[in-house]
């Protein structure tokens, strides 16, 4: 602490930008994009492992693998994946538009547009996950 910015005469927070308390819309977009991206990448590798059960166990191996994952806990995981994919995709479109020069003077509006569109898609899509959650047993 104790460092002082000479122009504004306010104390400078070391690593203050790493505390979520001080995040603003842009930092939230960056952090959420990064966390969701890493999570989806890890999921993708696990997903390939789960689907390739057909290589290791044939048709029966695949069907029993899928049946074992038709349980409530996995639905929660799929829903979290849905949140990550939705935000990452919508925010990614914003990043590409920025690269093309769209909205570079209206960052704030871009952040909020992404949050609102993501929230709408998540709200509508979550209905299907609730139906799946209710239909599946806790464990198989």
């Amino acid at each position: 602490m104790a460092k002082v910015d000479s122009a504004s005469n306010r104390p400078v927070r070391n690593y203050g930008d790493l505390n979520p308390r001080y995040f603003r819309t842009g930092m939230w977009s960056f952090v959420l994009h990064r966390i969701s991206g890493i999570a989806i990448s890890v999921f993708l590798l696990l997903h390939i492992w789960e689907i390739t059960s057909v290589v290791r166990g044939g048709a029966e191996g695949f069907t029993s693998q899928m049946a074992s994952m038709a349980a409530k806990l996995w639905v929660v995981g799929e829903w979290l994946l849905f949140l990550a994919l939705t935000f990452h995709g919508i925010n990614g479109i914003r990043l590409i538009l920025l690269d093309l020069g769209w909205g570079v003077h209206e960052h704030k509006r871009g952040f909020w547009t992404v949050f609102v569109i993501s929230a709408i898609i998540i709200a509508v899509g979550s209905y299907f996950f609730v139906m799946r959650f209710l239909a599946y047993p806790w464990a198989r």
Partner: peptide, 17 residues
């Protein structure tokens, strides 16, 4: 992919067939 697997028939259990 997500639409077909999760929204068309949300309670279906995937099988090999």
């Amino acid at each position: 992919h997500f639409g077909i697997m999760h929204f068309v028939d949300p309670t279906a259990v995937i099988t090999f067939a």
